[in-house]
Design a protein around this nucleic acid. Structure first.
Length: 432
RNA sequence: GUGAGCGUAGCUCAAUUGGUCAGAGCACUGGACUGUGGCUCCAGGGGUUGAGGGUUCAAUUCCCUUCGCUCACCCCA
């Protein structure tokens, strides 16, 4: 190895072959679930004008203030690698007039996000999200639907019983300011028992003080006024109906009045899917309603709701794949003549969608068999001088060690017959 | 951005109070075994011990700096 090696940038990581099967499974199941609910994929670019995120996420949020990958392109324009997907999706929604479609417009997207944070367990600078958005409808049944999609995804992944759904309503511009005042008053009253940061938050962003983890602050916050008692009539009713629909769908949840989220744009319903298995990074997914955001991005006054799933965190929870896909057979030619005869056989099998590997005819049979053993292939085809003379090849079953001659012109058909039994193209995996 | 712990072969890890300490296992390639594997034995490739500097007769070991990893704060997916 050279003295100076180029390594991956801090906080980003390679997804290696040993893990890609899990990733592919997660993506496949997600698409199945989302599309079953009528959501269509959209693929926005991974960078946008910086202004889009500044406006959409909120100028005073941590993400915008200190976590964005922002750079100037050669024309001097300020661009930013997306730290989240919703702003991009809504920008595309407005830009291409998708609001004329039958509402709600149901969209999802899958891909990398970028945030400049200190890497940690389950937290990366480039990470991947599944994002789902339902735009143009404010009926509480849509809130329940979106949460239902999320829960169905995790049910299909077999993870539902290891996660809990936290649910809250954070009101809207009609009622939140009043609550904010009450909370600030309470926090000021008890400022002496709060940590320094929470005292700062009291003035700058009081809602964020609610999820401070320090025990002393928790104690103070336990008796703080609850947002749920301060909701206006409309918000209270909306929340009650969301709960009613979730119950109708038998979806368990825990009302968490102190659940606040990092983006400014959320109103009313907010939710998180939490796990106890990932250390400090306990949120596997999060989302909420964002009525008003489309308008903020120069679009029509369409309401919306959506969620994001952290794929790395899900993958960490998924059990490792039981078994790698292995080729059906290793074709072992002994010598170049045999190689020439086997190459088209391999090609034909691959045309049929059956995976095989071919040796190069230069190694000893012993070593090739040893290799076949380690590849865990169930069958091996041996073609040497004597077989060539007789116009046949040997098919050896590695498990039993038995082998039988097969006429060369029947070889391909025989192998495909062997591969037809539960091998080759796997049906879409139904993950329990 | 703050704090703590840790960086030795592709992987997992050794190396007495600084003194043959640069090693083992796994993996890889080959040989023992002229065309029949899973066992065993043997051999080989691969490291300026993360990088740079300092202390010392001598540094993997001690000190400083730096980079990276891990965990926590913070934030969130």
């Amino acid at each position: 190895m050279p003295i100076v090696t180029i390594k991956a940038v801090r906080g980003v990581h390679d997804i290696l072959p040993a893990d890609t099967a899990r990733w592919q499974r997660l993506e496949a199941v997600s698409r199945q679930v989302f599309e079953a609910y009528g959501y269509k994929e959209i693929r926005p670019p991974i960078f946008e004008r910086t202004e889009l995120f500044a406006r959409g996420i909120g100028e005073v949020t941590d993400i915008v203030q200190k976590e964005m990958y922002t750079f100037e392109d050669r024309s001097g324009e300020s661009l930013t690698l997306r730290p989240e997907a919703t702003a991009s999706v809504l920008r595309a929604y407005v830009e291409h007039g998708l609001h004329v479609l039958a509402k709600p417009v149901r969209l999802y997207t899958v891909g990398p996000m970028f945030r400049y944070e200190r890497p940690q367990a389950g937290r990366y600078r480039q990470f991947h999200q599944l994002n789902l958005e339902a735009i143009g409808e404010n009926h509480p049944a849509l809130d329940a639907e979106v949460i239902g999609v999320l829960m169905e995804l995790f049910r299909r992944l077999g993870l539902a019983d290891r996660l809990t759904l936290s649910l809250n309503s954070i009101g809207d511009p009609a009622c939140r300011p009043a609550y904010r005042e009450k909370l600030v008053a309470y926090l000021r009253q008890n400022a002496g028992r709060l940590c320094g940061e929470c005292r700062e938050r009291t003035e700058r962003n009081p809602l964020r003080a609610l999820d401070c983890k320090k025990p002393d602050c928790q104690e103070v916050l336990d008796t703080a006024p609850s947002i749920l008692d301060a909701l206006c009539k409309e918000c209270g009713e909306h929340f009650a109906r969301v709960r009613q629909y979730l119950e109708a769908l038998s979806l368990p949840y825990v009302v968490t009045p102190r659940l606040v989220r990092g983006f400014d744009y959320y109103v009313r319903t907010t939710f998180e899917l939490l796990t106890g298995e990932l250390g400090a990074q306990n949120a596997v997914a999060g989302g909420g309603r964002y009525d008003g955001l489309v308008q903020l991005l120069d679009g029509p006054p369409d309401p919306g709701i959506g969620f994001a799933v952290g794929m790395e965190r899900v993958v960490l929870l998924l059990p490792p794949d039981a078994q790698d896909a292995v080729p059906l057979a290793l074709l072992i030619p002994l010598g170049d003549k045999a190689l020439v005869r086997l190459l088209p056989v391999a090609q034909a099998m691959r045309h049929s969608g059956v995976t095989v590997e071919v040796g190069y005819g230069v190694r000893k049979l012993r070593n090739e068999l040893d290799r076949a053993n380690r590849l865990k292939v169930p069958y091996v085809v041996i073609l040497g001088e004597s077989e060539l003379e007789k116009g046949e090849a040997l098919i050896r079953e590695m498990g039993s060690g038995t082998q039988r001659p097969v006429p060369l012109d029947r070889l391909e058909a025989e192998l495909i017959a062997l591969g037809g039994v539960g091998r080759g193209a796997e049906p879409p995996s139904e993950v329990r």
